[in-house]
């Protein structure tokens, strides 16, 4: 209940900040009214689009109190969706004005004779938002390197918000009132704070929390496990299932950080090592990760995430993983074995082939150490394979789970098709939704 209350409070704050410019403008109206109702709708859409865009920075600022309620992957998805929604509002703003006879050539062509400072800043902001959303949706199709995209994403976001702010101030109709000046001032200060915190203060704080790679070993399924050791500090403990952002380079200001699940067991002693298992998906995971060698420096921002077997207690656990999505589940199983937990654990592990199964030998050993049953599901099974084939489904779960399965806790991590299938299968099996935790690993 407390969680719902806290979640509601965060939502109310979010909604308040989106509607703040609109509410202030409605309460303290400007001296000169706009020529029509449609123009005011356009203005309102513009204000909402701006607020949504500005708050996008906050959604991905890794505020732990908010992430603890919603989950980092849900916040990331919400950030992605609201980015597209903001684009809709921002595009609708000039479109309505053009319908209301505003000269399109002045607003959409910064080189036309009638272009002014207000039209140019609006055009720049609009172009930045369009590029921002397009490069995010089609990053892979455009073959943009993740690190390049990350830099461009930050810069375009900044250009979009600053362009919009300049546009609002140059237009002046809603900045002439002191109340509105305070609102825009607050927005500017919060934005600057978030950017300075994330890009400057956080890396400086991380400087003293250096990590060193002590091992880089090859795993099955075209994956690698990197083991990190804290240098000059005690490292961190984590709940099994959590993840950290990995940054490899000479300084914490290095561009490019990657959210990776921790694959080693929890309950780490101070100064203990932490391991991450990374699948080769090209880019960083196919180039930088295989090249990493013992002694290389790294910075870990973590632990993050609410996806953990420690957060939900049940009479047993059902872990459902696909591909490299098994890594947080493997961490959970190892932690339970380490703690001598005797509760039953069922691991449904979907992979392409027998050779793609990461931690195959380790899982076999683990089955002897704890009450664990692993059910491998191969989508491209070899001849003679007697286990499950195809994909994890409602029928397959039914075949293997014990009678009391509705009292178990379900933890699912994997690619979108698996997650979508399970979000339908588990309710159909009568598993209460509050006993299901999910994490999509392709969150960025």
């Amino acid at each position: 209940m407390r969680l719902i209350l806290r979640g509601t409070l965060w939502f109310v704050l979010y909604l308040f900040l989106i509607l703040l410019p609109l509410a202030t403008a409605a309460l303290f109206q400007p001296a000169r009214l706009s020529p029509s109702m449609l123009t005011e709708v356009a203005v309102a859409l513009g204000f909402i689009g701006f607020s949504l865009m500005a708050l996008e920075f906050a959604l991905i600022s890794r505020v732990k109190t908010a992430a603890a309620i919603f989950g980092d992957d849900a916040l990331q998805l919400f950030h992605n969706l609201m980015g597209a929604v903001a684009l809709g509002f921002i595009v609708a703003h000039p479109m309505l004005l053009v319908v209301r006879d505003y000269p399109a050539q002045c607003w959409l062509n910064p080189f036309s004779d009638c272009a002014s400072r207000s039209t140019i800043t609006a055009f720049v902001a609009l172009l930045a938002v369009l590029l921002l959303v397009a490069t995010s949706i089609w990053r892979k199709q455009l073959r943009l390197k993740y690190e390049i995209w990350q830099i461009a994403h930050g810069l375009l976001a900044l250009v979009a918000v600053l362009g919009a702010l300049f546009h609002i101030f140059i237009m002046g109709r809603y900045t002439s009132m002191p109340q509105m000046q305070v609102v825009w001032g607050v927005y500017s200060v919060v934005l600057i704070y978030l950017i300075v915190w994330n890009r400057l203060i956080k890396p400086i704080l991380h400087w003293r929390r250096q990590w060193e790679i002590v091992e880089n070993r090859v795993e099955r399924g075209d994956s690698r496990t990197l083991v990190f050791k804290p240098v000059g500090h005690s490292g961190f403990d984590f709940e099994p299932g959590q993840f950290a952002w990995i940054k490899m380079g000479r300084s914490p200001f290095t561009v490019g950080q990657h959210p990776i699940s921790i694959s080693s067991p929890g309950d780490v002693e101070p100064g203990g090592t932490v391991a991450f298992t990374i699948k080769n998906l090209g880019d960083w995971s196919g180039g930088r990760v295989p090249a990493a060698k013992p002694g290389d420096r790294a910075w870990l921002d973590g632990p993050h995430g609410v996806f953990s077997s420690d957060r939900e207690q049940g009479m047993g656990y059902v872990l459902i993983g696909g591909g490299v999505g098994v890594t947080p589940l493997y961490s959970m199983a190892q932690t339970m074995a380490q703690r001598g937990d005797v509760r039953p654990v069922y691991l449904f592990y979907g992979a392409k082939t027998w050779d793609d199964i990461i931690f195959r030998e380790e899982l076999e050993t683990l089955q002897g150490r704890m009450n664990l049953k692993v059910i491998y599901v191969l989508s491209q099974a070899h001849e003679g394979w007697e286990g499950e084939t195809g994909f994890v489904s409602e029928e397959l779960l039914k075949r293997h789970l014990p009678k009391q399965y509705k009292r178990f806790v379900y933890l699912i991590c994997g690619p979108d098709p698996l997650m979508d299938a399970m979000e339908k299968a588990l309710p159909a099996l009568g598993v209460p939704p509050d006993q299901v935790q999910t994490e999509r690993f392709a969150m960025v």
């Binding site: 403008a25 449609l38 909402i48 949504l52 849900a74 919400f78 969706l81 609201m82 999910t438």
Partner: peptide, 30 residues
Amino acid sequence: MHHVLVKRFSVALSTLLVIAAFAFALLVRG
């Protein structure tokens, strides 16, 4: 949190914001 919920929530919020934009115009234009 279920992703279907996040998507539904985003759609509901967007609808609410469109309504807010029209409400604003009505308020301002009296």
